[in-house]
Design a protein around this nucleic acid. Sequence first.
DNA 1: GACAAATCACTGCCGCGGCAGTATTCTTAC
DNA 2: GTAAGAATACTGCCGCGGCAGTGATTTGTC
Lengths: 174, 174
Amino acid sequence: MVRRATIKAETPPAAHLPEGGLSVGYLMGRARASLLSGLDAELAPFGLNAMQYAVLKQLAEGSARTAADLCRYMYYDTGSMTRVLDRLEEKGLLRRERCREDRRVVFLRVAAAGRAQLPRLRAAGTRVLDDHLRGFSPAEVEALKRLLGRMIDNGLRPKLTGGATDLHARGGKP
Amino acid sequence: MVRRATIKAETPPAAHLPEGGLSVGYLMGRARASLLSGLDAELAPFGLNAMQYAVLKQLAEGSARTAADLCRYMYYDTGSMTRVLDRLEEKGLLRRERCREDRRVVFLRVAAAGRAQLPRLRAAGTRVLDDHLRGFSPAEVEALKRLLGRMIDNGLRPKLTGGATDLHARGGKP
DNA sequence: GACAAATCACTGCCGCGGCAGTATTCTTAC
DNA sequence: GTAAGAATACTGCCGCGGCAGTGATTTGTC
């Protein structure tokens, strides 16, 4: 995260990048970078970045209750997550609370201050997304999601020459 | 770059992420990460990462001749580019050659060793991309590119509340 | 011709993400 | 009951990306 600002953003009239090869990859990188830098810019007034917002949002929505949950849910490194949570806790937007039944886990609760900020944060998030999806019909958004989802699925079940990626899809214990 | 390997890659049966909110952003991040980690894995045997490959490729194809060219073309930071080129030069895949007419610029030439590796690198690149696009019809690939391109264009011409992003689209000299 | 502005490559600095390793606690197997 | 394994959170370490600033050189302006 942090992408602080779009790289210069010279003055490209259109987004026609390298045609051949990884075009799709380039386009995804550019689109994602634009989304993230826009989000970072909108969140800057609150002293937050995109990742911190995402974490806060997932916690508030109940999609996750612990750091491990968040990491699984967001495909994020556990070490980095610890530090994200540190920053959120420092800012007083989050509280950590050791679980009594299982003393390994630490529950994460959005603090009152965080809960108070969330509506504005959410507004910033939807603003950026809607802006990037300007002119998209609902069907087109759905199509985009579907195509991206298929790419992800393909990546999870690679059919490469020798299974080079570290997928150890332990398919169900015997 | 460098994403060295996919984050754990636990065992998610499908890519159904957070429905609401930034879903598109999450999906793009995941898809891009999958592409990059796959590419890094395929390039690891050559001691290269995705970024180094991309640079070498653009240079070989004549899309750019200098560091500044590459940065504009790939939306990349000039400082980071210098270091990417340093590594490629260290590996003997690239030569720097000061221009005589304009002594500020340094021409970049793919060294013989680099040119020799390129076919295998290219093969790795297309392998990863094709793998992620498995089952996609040409029309679907085209649709995906078009949708991503529109998102990028939207991001370049933001219609946000107060032009928060640092776009200074100096619209054509008068 | 002189000065300002722009361009190019590069460097120092900082934050972040990913990996590997650690301590603690729980679960499973024998 | 105990030992082995897994899970959780955390820390140290390293590489990389982005920003700001520098020096050299060229271009543009008056």
